[in-house]
Design a protein around this nucleic acid. Structure first.
Lengths: 261, 261
DNA sequence: ACAGTCGGTTCAATATTATCACCATCGGTT
DNA sequence: AACCGATGGTGATAATATTGAACCGACTGT
């Protein structure tokens, strides 16, 4: 299945800054032969995952994705559950809120709400969050399946900023801390000038499957802001987890009670 | 690339009535060996296109799709352009409106709005519309690339109802008629008791790349209803095409002027 | 006219994948 | 409790699909 894997990886080279990619450029990015790349994009385009700009012949994400997304929303609504909560906590805290879900082996941002003020954090749509360097990832790992965490922390951890914590032992300490407070934090560990505070989301078995997070400019972060933001994300966590058919783990509920009280 | 093709085809077996599929069942549906199917769903799940229900172990569409959809919306907004128009014509006409776009080789429904009345047509989310049997398909083909139409009409055409027109010659006549009125029709050609009226959508080169359609219960369809609905979809067609960066072809503009006047 | 792109195609060499058989587990029936 | 027929999942080998260098025509700027 290496071929399928490589073909699907091609989709990951598209983002909001590089929304259209030509054949040669895509082949170069993916380090796959142009002929092979061409065959792959052809198949992806036939299924509506990519479409070709009729003039430039560059490829971009296709309308078939919208179809699948609508289908999933119809069966397992996320937007309609999540957006009101994100909106509310973004307004409450005056900071940017976002939610990410575990999809495959990655935490993917699937919703966000920005506050109505000039100096705010912007969340790049569809951003993939590294587990070790983000508050979302910390909160997720703290309540995720241990084997999954082991796998993540056994890999080489990339330093995104000077402040990125790449030491597995130190990270595990932060997971423990998160299990005692109910929320995870990452101050400039992923992007400079940004501090984040996150609470885990849970599936029906009380295993973490995502996180709800508030990101603030470092300049506005302090102990009291952290406290009130932590309360917001923990409350949102309950609401979203249950809205998506999950149930917070007992461990989380007992610590959350103390923190949010 | 047959492997990639088959793997992506697996996703097409999911719909709103069959939102979760077990491994064996999926293998049976796709007529692929269970071992192969398993490897494919594993890859798809790793990329977030599928996810496995932790208890039942059945597979369902994954959150990675939401990420890609959000990314596409950020680069090429569709929802935000289309929804207001659909809403408006659904209210105007009191009937269900939907839009479909060409994705790969198929017309895929990517938006819909239902009117506020009990007896209305329900559009299954993510429905794939056969070209020859739907008003959307007729309107699309009438203004699509001729080679594309030839390919479609050279295939065996399935009869969905007793009223489905499966004769290529007859269908081409209806395409001609559509080119003279600006709108395509299909009365119970796809689903019984439903009459549809559609106008094409155009890309930047004036080639059809979708359709906007209104579907009504047969009982409410008559000549005067058809006329006013046709005007609505034609007007919506202009608005949506241009909203999505397209421009109606000259041919369409000249006939639309007469019909909608 | 040339060099350097681009998107796209071909065919022999080869690495990949499909198949079959098997395993462990589950839920219901006898 | 033993059995049955499902289920999800796995491993080795035979068979197949994928690969990639070279090539094509078209276009762009020099």
């Amino acid at each position: 299945m290496r071929t399928v894997d490589k073909a699907l990886k091609l989709l990951d080279y598209f983002n909001d800054r590089r929304s259209e990619i030509g054949l040669s450029e895509l082949a170069r990015l993916a380090e796959i032969d142009k002929a092979t790349t061409h065959r792959m994009v052809t198949v992806l385009a036939n299924h509506g995952f990519l479409e070709q700009h009729p003039d430039t012949r560059a490829y971009r994400l296709g309308a078939g994705i919208l179809r699948l997304a609508r289908l999933r929303e119809a069966c397992f609504p996320v937007e309609v559950i999540v957006n009101p909560v994100l909106r509310r906590i973004a307004d409450q805290t005056g900071e940017t809120a976002h939610i990410s879900l575990l999809a495959g082996r990655q935490l993917m941002t699937v919703g966000s709400a920005e506050p109505d003020r000039g100096n705010r954090v912007h969340i790049e749509p569809g951003l993939i969050l590294p587990f070790h360097a983000t508050a979302s990832g910390i909160a997720f790992m703290a309540f995720a399946a241990p084997e999954f965490v082991d796998k993540i922390l056994s890999r080489k951890l990339k330093a995104f900023t000077d402040a990125t914590d790449c030491d597995p032992v130190s990270i595990r300490n932060r997971l423990s801390a998160c299990r005692e407070t109910g929320f995870g934090i990452s101050d400039e560990g992923f992007q400079t000038e940004i501090c984040s505070t996150a609470a885990p989301l849970f599936d029906a078995n009380g295993i973490a499957n995502g996180a709800v997070t508030i990101a603030t400019p470092t300049s506005r972060m302090n102990a009291s802001a952290r406290r009130s933001i932590a309360e917001s994300v923990i409350e949102a966590s309950y609401e979203i987890s249950r809205g998506l058919g999950g149930e917070p783990s007992e461990m989380f509920k007992s610590v959350a009670r103390k923190t949010a009280a």
